[in-house]
Simulated assay, not measured.
Amino acid sequence: MSTLQDTPEPASPEKSGPSRLARRFGCLALLLVPFVLLGVIVMAPVWISDFRLARMVDRIKEYPLPPGTDFGYFDPQVEVSGDSGDCWYTIRFDLFTDRPVQEVLNYYRQTKIEDPDGDLGDYEILAWTPFDEPGVQADETSATDSLIIDLDGMYDGAMSDMRCW
């Protein structure tokens, strides 16, 4: 007759070690770590530049609007491009206004919003209006319902931002 002391204990998962499938996933994860680190190193300058541009967009949104003006339907959009390490950006936002285009354009040309490099007003400002009827020329003093503002500028310190090459 056998006793409880003579019966072998069943192997517990804690004592038997990781399964074959778990070991394979662990090896695969170790093989992927260098590629993930390389991706982080390559993308870090892009993320830093995007953060700096997002701060500028926040400053634009917080700046007082011209009288009789409100932001349009879409949030400001940022486009980054470049050549030979020079980074150019365009921040585009739309406004609804009852003011003449030139008045709103002059208002934004006089503002001093800090750019991504920390300079004040180091960008160009353009304004344009959408037209429903092709071939109709706008009078500069006429009022408009919708107006699109573009802030175009350059920022430094992005030699490793791959969008600038």
Rank of each mutant, 00 (worst) to 15 (best):
L53P: 01
R55I: 09
Q5S: 10
G17A: 02
V80Y: 02
E9L: 12
R109Q: 07
W88L: 14
D117Q: 04
P130H: 05
W47C: 08
M162R: 13
C87K: 11
E79R: 12
Q5K: 11
S81E: 14
P45H: 05
A158F: 07
S160T: 15
W165D: 12
R20M: 05
T97D: 09
G39R: 02
G26S: 09
L151Y: 13
R163E: 08
P10Q: 02
P67I: 10
A138Q: 11
E140F: 04
D83I: 09
G82K: 10
Y73I: 15
L151V: 10
G85I: 04
N106L: 03
F71Y: 11
L28W: 06
G68W: 14
S146K: 14
L21P: 02
A138K: 06
E79M: 13
L53E: 03
A22W: 00
I113G: 02
D161F: 08
P45V: 08
D132C: 05
F35S: 03
S81H: 07
Q102Y: 11
M43S: 13
E124N: 11
S146I: 15
E103T: 08
E133S: 07
T90S: 15
S49T: 12
W165K: 15
P34Q: 05
M154W: 13
G85M: 07
P18M: 09
I41L: 08
P8C: 06
R92Q: 10
L21D: 03
A138T: 02
T90F: 14
D152C: 14
I149L: 05
V78D: 01
M154R: 14
D117L: 00
V36S: 05
M154K: 15
D145M: 11
Y89A: 02
D94L: 10
L28Q: 06
M1V: 13
P134W: 07
V57Y: 08
D161Y: 04
E103Y: 04
L126W: 04
T97V: 11
W47V: 13
D58S: 11
L151T: 03
A29R: 02
T3L: 08
P34W: 03
E9I: 12
I91Q: 09
P134I: 09
F71R: 01
L126E: 09
E62H: 14
V136E: 01
A54W: 09
A11V: 03
Y107M: 08
L28D: 06
D115L: 07
W165N: 15
Q5H: 06
S160E: 15
Y63V: 12
I125L: 11
S49V: 04
L65C: 06
E103P: 01
K112A: 15
D83A: 15
F71Q: 00
D139H: 06
A158M: 12
